[in-house]
Design a protein around this nucleic acid. Structure first.
Lengths: 242, 242
DNA sequence: ACATCTGTGTCGACTACTCGACAGCGCGGC
DNA sequence: GCCGCGCTGTCGAGTAGTCGACACAGATGT
């Protein structure tokens, strides 16, 4: 069973899949389809029935809460430490959010029915799903506090760092406009903060691309929420994700 | 089995318990202990093992995210539409938050082991737990957006309304200081907003007590988040909670 | 009646962020 | 090559909320 995946093993970096015992992984591996997800694509919109679950390997997916005026703000990111739509493994669900590809990359997709089937048979998978949902909840409640208490600069850094943890390398492709939406602030504010971080030598910004130059420097500026969320994931999920 | 609860039936207002089929409720009712929870009491602090689950009847519990500097901000409230600690019904868990009694009242308590036992035997209970956790997650992500995008006045009204939905009557006992903590703003800001709402005739404020005078007026001022979260609960949970 | 403590009102200086407008730069298409 | 568009930088006026300080009012205990 697992053999069918040997060829792709090198790119199968999702931490959740990696944490499954071989036998349990065998239940789902025949149903996994690996695919490239292109930046900007919407996997779900609010109200959509969840029909597929995605396990990112090196892409990042943003869960965006939509407001009536069209604003879309990130409530949590999902990368190789997690999966999109995992709540639907337990029972059919509609998406609460817009799920958008924030950084292109590979992910493994599986149908809800196949995953649910494996879920009924694998205690290890049930445990993993449960832990993941808990970690995601932890991320969300930390962000509630963070958005109420912390300034844009700290949140900007936090966002960069948590994105970096989920991809390979220190180069992130995004526009200031996009980031402003994610953080729920004005684009001009992002420009100002980006300029300030660049002046401090922590990042480099060029048209649509940010390079992280000094990760430790960013960690010194960001708020405690970055570390708190990270600890939450590390405690609940089997493998470190950085 | 259920007979043992007949005497208390009049005060058993928790919507989750009420939604359980008689047979399933019979699995847990012998283990439920009804008790008064006094305002200000901490049921959990972050890191505490969850040993008991609480089903509020007419009290309100706040889930507070703690920050390093001691600030504690509300990430979600729990009233008769839900239960505190329900994630632990599935598997042992540590609390992520401080759970504090925001409004005194009655709740039914049950040990994690008794509830987990019932959980393994009752599909209806499993479904309910799952739906509840989803609704709570929905609340959290809406609050992430709300805190980033909406002003204090709208959030103040939202808080009042969602508290009112969970208790009997239009009188809420709280100080401005406490509310300032919950919202993550300065006390002076709360004073200003409260004064403005009072001037508009929507509330009356006297030392430690707010009376809601015009609920519809508050709904007109608050942000869409109030209705969005409420819809989320109504969709996922069997009974309306207002 | 008194002191005391907790909760509320208010003031002013300050800061972070908004919001609209516009100029310029760089990249891709032709 | 040049055009055009999408992304970035900047400026300025306006506002919401911070932060510290202090005065006052209402409850409570003795």
């Amino acid at each position: 069973m697992v053999d069918s995946f040997d060829g792709a093993a090198a790119t199968l970096k999702n931490r959740l899949l990696a944490a499954l015992p071989t036998e349990d992984f065998g239940l789902i591996s025949p149903h996994l389809v690996q695919q490239e997800l292109e930046k900007g694509r919407h996997l779900y919109d609010p109200g959509d029935p969840i029909e597929a679950i995605y396990f990112p390997h090196d892409c990042v997916i943003s869960l965006m809460t939509l407001m009536e005026n069209g604003a879309a703000i990130e409530s949590a990111p999902i990368g190789r430490e997690g999966a999109l739509g995992l709540m639907a493994a337990v029972a059919p669900r509609q998406s609460l959010v817009r799920a958008i590809i924030q950084t292109s990359g590979q992910a493994s997709r599986i149908s809800v029915s196949a995953l649910h089937d494996a879920w009924t048979r694998s205690p290890a998978l049930r445990d993993l799903v449960d832990r993941h949902n808990e970690a995601l909840f932890g991320h969300a409640i930390q962000s509630v506090a963070c958005n109420a208490l912390h300034g844009v600069e700290a949140r900007f850094c936090r966002w960069l760092l948590s994105c970096r943890d989920r991809i390979e390398g220190d180069t992130i492709s995004l526009t200031q406009e996009f980031l402003a939406d994610m953080l729920g602030v004005q684009r001009t504010t992002v420009t100002a903060v980006a300029g300030s971080l660049q002046a401090k030598g922590l990042i480099r910004y060029r048209r649509g691309v940010v390079d992280i130059l000094d990760r430790a420097g960013l960690e010194a500026i960001t708020c405690e929420c970055y570390a708190a969320v990270r600890r939450g994931y590390e405690r609940l999920l089997p493998l470190p994700f950085g």
